[in-house]
């Protein structure tokens, strides 16, 4: 069987879907961050696959940059979650209920 562009696209859409489902259903803030990483990496996979099959190197360049952005976002996110934990002694998403309506 030949692995073609379609296989990569299906894989990346699946990964993106799993990540999106995780962000919506998980209660632990760090697990949500991990699911977001999954979504970003699904997009990266798609970019690399397109780049290979469309013969344009632009996609690979975006991936290099987006990895850096993902790392920056994760580090700021973890720092913010730590500061939240110091306030509440808890990082359950359900307890983020001080501000509403």
């Amino acid at each position: 069987m030949n692995i073609g562009l379609t296989h990569y696209l299906v894989l990346s859409v699946l990964l993106f879907g799993i990540g999106l489902y995780g962000t919506l259903s998980r209660r632990h803030a760090i697990v949500v961050l991990m699911c977001i990483e999954l979504m970003l990496n699904a997009a990266n996979l798609m970019l690399v696959a397109f780049s290979r099959y469309v013969f344009s190197h632009g996609g690979q360049a975006i991936v290099i940059f987006s990895l850096v952005v993902a790392a920056a976002e994760a580090s700021v996110g973890l720092a913010i979650i730590i500061s939240f934990y110091r306030q509440r002694k808890n990082i359950d998403i359900k307890d983020i209920d001080l501000l509403k309506w």
Binding site: L9, F16, G19, L20, T23, A29, V32, L33, I36, M39, L40, A42, A43, N44, M46, L47, A49, F50, V54, S56, G58, G59, I62, S66, V69, E73, V76, G77, I80, I81, S83, F84, I93, I96, L99
Partner: peptide, 25 residues
């Protein structure tokens, strides 16, 4: 508010990147 902002903002940037990847492809 920062936790809300970063979690929603990061999901949003993943969606944005996915959309841009499709547009590029």
């Amino acid at each position: 508010s920062a936790v809300k902002y970063i979690l929603l903002g990061a999901v949003n940037s993943a969606i944005l990147l996915f959309g841009l990847a499709l547009v590029f492809g």
